[in-house]
Amino acid sequence: MSAAPVIWAIAPSHTYLLRHEVLWPDKPLDYVKLDDDAEGYHYGAFQDDQLVAVISLFVNGSEARFRKFATSPAYQRQGIGSALLRYVVAEARRLEASCLWCDARQDSAGFYARFGMQPEGDVFYKGPIAYLRMARTL
């Protein structure tokens, strides 16, 4: 079993390659850049000094949303994404949000449910991929 990942705040640009590789490899790199990346908080999980997972947090008043959560395939199912999400839940609380939500790929809903997130509303699609809004109170 690997040591726990080290989690650091990172620049938005440091998230782009993993976002692209994991989430939208068939799209151009610019597709994974967000117009409001400069206003967000971006975190990376490092294993053996290598960036292996990223997540971006956006806080608007009492509401926090995380986006572009991606873990390198070679490091999935090792607890790294879970550690990163726990970190972001704590950060959202620290930033005084009372609600945390995301647009989750439907096939990942079970993962988010383990963190107390529940589906809200109907399934929707981004291209061919089914999504659910999932949220929890903090």
Results as ranks from 00 to 15, higher is better:
residue 46 F to K: 08
residue 132 L to K: 14
residue 88 V to E: 07
residue 51 L to Y: 03
residue 37 D to V: 09
residue 40 G to F: 13
residue 29 L to H: 01
residue 62 S to N: 08
residue 34 L to R: 08
residue 83 A to Q: 11
residue 68 K to W: 15
residue 129 I to F: 11
residue 62 S to R: 10
residue 108 S to Y: 12
residue 55 I to T: 12
residue 1 M to G: 13
residue 114 R to E: 12
residue 40 G to V: 08
residue 89 V to Y: 10
residue 113 A to V: 03
residue 29 L to R: 04
residue 113 A to R: 15
residue 76 Q to I: 04
residue 14 H to C: 03
residue 95 L to H: 05
residue 44 G to C: 10
residue 67 R to N: 04
residue 90 A to N: 12
residue 73 P to D: 12
residue 88 V to F: 11
residue 99 C to H: 07
residue 8 W to N: 13
residue 20 H to F: 04
residue 96 E to W: 06
residue 136 R to Y: 07
residue 109 A to D: 09
residue 135 A to P: 00
residue 59 V to R: 15
residue 16 Y to T: 00
residue 101 W to M: 06
residue 9 A to I: 07
residue 35 D to M: 10
residue 65 R to S: 12
residue 7 I to N: 09
residue 25 P to I: 04
residue 40 G to Y: 13
residue 129 I to A: 03
residue 135 A to N: 01
residue 113 A to M: 08
residue 36 D to I: 11
residue 61 G to A: 13
residue 85 L to S: 06
residue 7 I to A: 09
residue 66 F to D: 00
residue 138 L to R: 05
residue 41 Y to Q: 06
residue 118 Q to Y: 09
residue 23 L to C: 01
residue 57 L to T: 02
residue 22 V to W: 07
residue 100 L to Y: 11
residue 79 G to E: 12
residue 82 S to C: 01
residue 64 A to N: 07
residue 1 M to E: 11
residue 138 L to I: 14
residue 69 F to R: 06
residue 48 D to P: 00
residue 15 T to E: 04
residue 97 A to K: 01
residue 31 Y to W: 14
residue 91 E to S: 03
residue 119 P to W: 10
residue 137 T to G: 05
residue 108 S to A: 15
residue 14 H to Y: 09
residue 84 L to A: 05
residue 72 S to Q: 13
residue 77 R to C: 04
residue 93 R to I: 12
residue 121 G to R: 11
residue 52 V to L: 12
residue 85 L to A: 08
residue 85 L to N: 07
residue 115 F to A: 07
residue 59 V to L: 15
residue 116 G to F: 15
residue 31 Y to H: 14
residue 123 V to P: 04
residue 132 L to D: 01
residue 41 Y to N: 02
residue 138 L to T: 01
residue 84 L to N: 06
residue 106 Q to A: 14
residue 85 L to R: 10
residue 24 W to E: 02
residue 99 C to D: 04
residue 3 A to L: 15
residue 9 A to G: 06
residue 85 L to D: 06
residue 28 P to D: 06
residue 138 L to H: 03
residue 9 A to E: 15
residue 126 K to N: 08
residue 106 Q to W: 10
residue 11 A to D: 14
residue 124 F to P: 04
residue 44 G to Q: 10
residue 44 G to L: 12
residue 112 Y to K: 08
residue 57 L to K: 09
residue 17 L to Y: 14
residue 73 P to N: 09
residue 107 D to A: 02
residue 29 L to N: 00
residue 119 P to H: 08
residue 43 Y to Q: 08
residue 3 A to R: 06
residue 58 F to L: 15
residue 103 D to A: 09
residue 90 A to D: 15
residue 101 W to L: 08
residue 87 Y to W: 13
